[in-house]
């Protein structure tokens, strides 16, 4: 039996979710996090802050993680078999991901905060689309159109970043040129 009350609440919840977290809260959270980090920092820990070591450690962690994930996948042979059916997805991920991450970093350097946040939201939406596609690929019908859309999704993310970066850089160059004049 459907619960009319629950249905109504689900439908209208957004109307009453109007409170906003107060501005100062983040500062309190950040302060707490700082405190915790300082507490946790032992001499050994401090090594981590050296960039090279940190990078190496992250790389190592990633390798370990990848291996672990691989292993997990191998455990569920069907899943592995499933993904291995789509080498183009693996290729797309390998090709686009590093470029996307590099562009995001670049954006953070040259764009302002609000802008970067907005762009990250857009990227998150695209990523969400990707998840939807992946879910449909797994659950329903395994088809080429979806796989194509997934590859396209990676490309869209990159294109979005490229377009925005290009525009910002173009305008900023103009500004520099103007200043020099």
């Amino acid at each position: 039996m459907e619960d009319k009350l629950k249905k109504m609440v689900q439908l209208h919840q957004q109307e009453i979710d109007t409170l906003q977290a107060p501005e100062f809260l983040w500062e309190r959270i950040a302060a707490d996090l700082d405190k915790q980090q300082n507490k946790a920092a032992t001499p050994i820990r401090r090594l981590w802050t050296k960039p090279m070591l940190r990078a190496a450690a992250v790389a190592l962690l990633m390798i370990v993680a990848t291996l672990l994930i691989r292993q997990q996948w191998e455990n569920t042979a069907s899943q592995q078999a499933f993904w291995s059916r789509y080498p183009e997805l693996q290729e797309a991920e390998a090709r686009f991901r590093p470029m996307i991450i590099a562009k995001v970093r670049r954006l953070e350097q040259i764009g302002d905060k609000a802008l970067t946040d907005a762009l990250l939201q857009d990227l998150a939406l695209l990523e969400q689309d990707y998840e939807t596609l992946a879910k449909d690929l797994r659950d329903n019908a395994d088809n080429r159109q979806i796989v194509k859309a997934m590859v396209e999704n990676y490309r869209s993310r990159l294109q979005l970043l490229e377009r925005i970066l290009q525009e910002i850089e173009k305008k900023q160059n103009h500004e520099k040129a103007d200043v020099q004049l």
């Binding site: 979710d17 109007t18 409170l19 906003q20 977290a21 809260l25 983040w26 959270i29 950040a30 996090l33 953070e108 946040d117 990250l120 939201q121």
Partner: peptide, 18 residues
């Protein structure tokens, strides 16, 4: 990364506050 943490915070703070 504090910046990333803040971004996550901003995404969810209002909803969680409610």
């Amino acid at each position: 990364d504090r910046k990333a943490q803040f971004q996550i915070y901003k995404l969810y703070a209002d909803a969680m506050y409610n």
